[in-house]
Every structure is written in C-alpha cells, then in structure tokens.
Simulated scan of single mutants.
Amino acid sequence: MTTPINPRMAHTFPPPVMEARRWLDGVTFTDDNPLINVSQAAPVAPPPEPLRKAIADFALNQPEAHLYGPVLGLPELRAEVAHQWSLAYGGDIRPDHVAITSGCNQAFAAAISTLAGQGDEVILPTPWYFNHKMWLDMQGVTTVPLATGSDLMPDPEAAEKLITGKTKAIALVTPNNPGGVEYLGALLGQFMALCRKHNLALIVDETYRDFDGRSGRPHALFSDPDWADTLIHLYSFSKAFRLTGHRVGAVIADEGRLTEIEKFLDTVAICPNQLGQYAALWGLRNLTNWLAGERLEILDRRAAMEEGFPSLNGWRLLGCGAYFAYAEHPFAESSADLAKRLVRDTAVLMLPGTMFMPEDDPAGARQMRIAFANIDRSGINTLFQRLSNL
C-alpha cells in the first residue's frame, strides 16, 4: 500500500472479535465436538417472532421507515425512552435529553467527539471495553488506565490521582464489559461527585442494564436535579430486543451537548436505522414481560457459571454478571497464546485478557473473558468439562 495511512488508525489495534474469528481458519470441528463460541457479547438468535412480524409490517406499511429521519432519532422513540427511563431511575429526563444512535458504540463515539480531541485524556478502568479504547486511539485521545484490582471495582480516590489538566471524562461500564461486575449505586455517586468537582463528564455505559442481577434502581444518578451538568448515559437496544443487526442505541445528556452530538451524527450516518427505531419503540411498548424472561434466563446462566467454576483447578473467577465471566487461568503461557490453543485443543473460542488491558499490564496475560449469554446450562457444563480436560 503506497497511499498514506492516518497514523492514528495504523496504531489502533485490530478489532478483537474479528481477529479471534480468524483463529478458526483451518481448524476442523466435528459433530461430536462442535465449537463453543464464548467470544462475542451479542445475541445470536433473531428478535422474538412478534417483533419480527412488527418489523415486517413497518417495512410494508410505514413508507417513512425507508426514508431519512430526524438526525437525533424518531421523536416517539426519544419520548418513550425519556418516559421509561424517568420512571426506572426516579429522575427528570425529557425527550430533548435523548438522542438515538446507530448502536451504543456510536453513542460513545459521539459523546467523546463532543468532549475530547487530540492530546486530551479520558480515564478508563481496566480491564476496559476494547472498542472504547479503539475510538480514543483513533481520535488521538490518551487513554489513562485505572487499575481495578482483584474485585474489578474502580476506586474514586485512585481515579482522582490520575486527573490532570487534560482530563475530560471518566467512562464506566456497568454491568461491566468485560468483567461482569455490577457497580454499586453509591460508588457511581462517588464518581459523579468526583467528576463534578473537577468539571469532568461522567460517561456511564449501561448496555447490559436489562440483565442486572439486582432488583430496583441500579443507581440514583438521574434523581440528582442537576444530573445533566455531569452525566452522559449510554444504552443499547441490541441486547434487550436482539436488534444487533439493526444498530439502535441511545445517549442521554444535556440538550446543549446533544446539539453538538447532532453534528457528529449527521456527518457519519445522517440518521439512525429507521426500521430499527420502530422496532425498538415497539419493543419498549410490548416486550416488557418477554424481556423479564430473558433476564431470568441470563441470570440462571450466570448462576451456572458461578456454580461450575470451583470444579476448574487453578482457575479463579474474578467477576460474573450480565453476559460475562472474567477469570484468571492457571497456565504458564500468556492468555493470548492460550486462547488460540483452546480453539485447537478444546474447540472453545474465548477472548484473552490481553485484549482488554494495556500492553504493559501483566495481568492481562493471566486473564480470560467468557461471554456465556449464548450457551445454556448444558452448554456451560460442556464448557467446564472441556476446560477441565485441558
């Protein structure tokens, strides 16, 4: 290749899930020993049949579903999110606080684009969600890692020591990807106070909030009447309603920031997927009970992971929740090498901790992420059998 490459793109690591899929090339799996894929945190099943029928109806009978729509999303969907989120969090969220995006990754990219540029800094707890790190690298924003220790919980006091004049935001994911841990509401409140004290944005990505193991409100951030001066909330409809291919997410922030976000969205996508937005709106209005059942199934799989881990000699479970178990392995080799050996020797595809950690952090070499949302209890038992035989 002789034409120029943006050095920031060239220095950004390849998409981890796509890289892991390439490990399957040339490997043969059998009916007796099929591949167990616990690498990607996304539903592989289509939306439930009633939602698929609704999408087909929208496609046939809603002409505007095939046209450009408002850059910040369908007004009806924005209003429904504002209404349901206000009830769920006990806060005052208006439709003009809500923007619909092409997935939650775009919500993060849009938010960061309004906050930080070349040479600025954003604090991410480690292990981090790799797409957050990738976007910061592409933008020339320095990622400042906040080590979380064996409980995977970020420490506000440790975070404060990392804040400099270049820091623009702290970004948290709860329930956490990749760690699975659920941040306590009090902890999020401490981070809110910290960010307000230093005039930073607090980004809280709650992509997996529908699968939180706790009942009631996960936090009280929105009950603060001045939440919009600090908080930026991100969400994804992909996990709740299995709309991964339709790319529908949301960002909730103050209306002034959404004015800036609108510039970003208009430039990169013009508007979110229209059919996906109608589907998300239909899901919010009609699939509450179905989603409650999905949550219970995921919680049962989480329980199966927690019950099975003691059978693995030398493995240590660090965190488990939402779609994820995050663990230390007992082998001498790096997790990057172990992940490839798992494919060859056990027909298991999972991601190594090195994909979620800074290169100079040795902890990543000892850690693995297991995305268990797409395997049932029987599949989880088979997974443990294969890992035990490794």
Rank of each mutant, 00 (worst) to 15 (best):
V44R: 14
T267W: 11
E260D: 12
A147C: 08
F237P: 03
V173A: 12
A82I: 01
R301Q: 15
G189I: 00
N177V: 12
R285G: 05
H83K: 14
E160K: 13
N6H: 09
A240V: 13
D137I: 09
E64Y: 09
H83V: 01
T346S: 15
L162T: 04
H233L: 10
L338I: 02
W227V: 04
Y323L: 15
V98K: 04
F211L: 13
G308R: 09
Y129C: 12
F372E: 08
T101I: 03
M355Y: 13
R386Q: 04
L35A: 05
S311H: 03
P145E: 02
I261W: 00
P330L: 06
H219P: 05
P47W: 01
P272W: 00
L136V: 10
D229Y: 05
M357A: 11
S311D: 03
N176M: 09
C104I: 12
K340C: 07
E359W: 12
R52N: 11
I55A: 12
P352A: 05
P15S: 11
L184W: 08
Q367K: 10
N176Q: 08
G165D: 14
L349N: 02
F130C: 06
L338R: 02
T30H: 10
R257W: 09
D120R: 04
T126I: 10
T164E: 00
N37L: 08
A292W: 01
L296V: 09
L275H: 05
V98Y: 06
M153E: 14
G119F: 06
L291V: 15
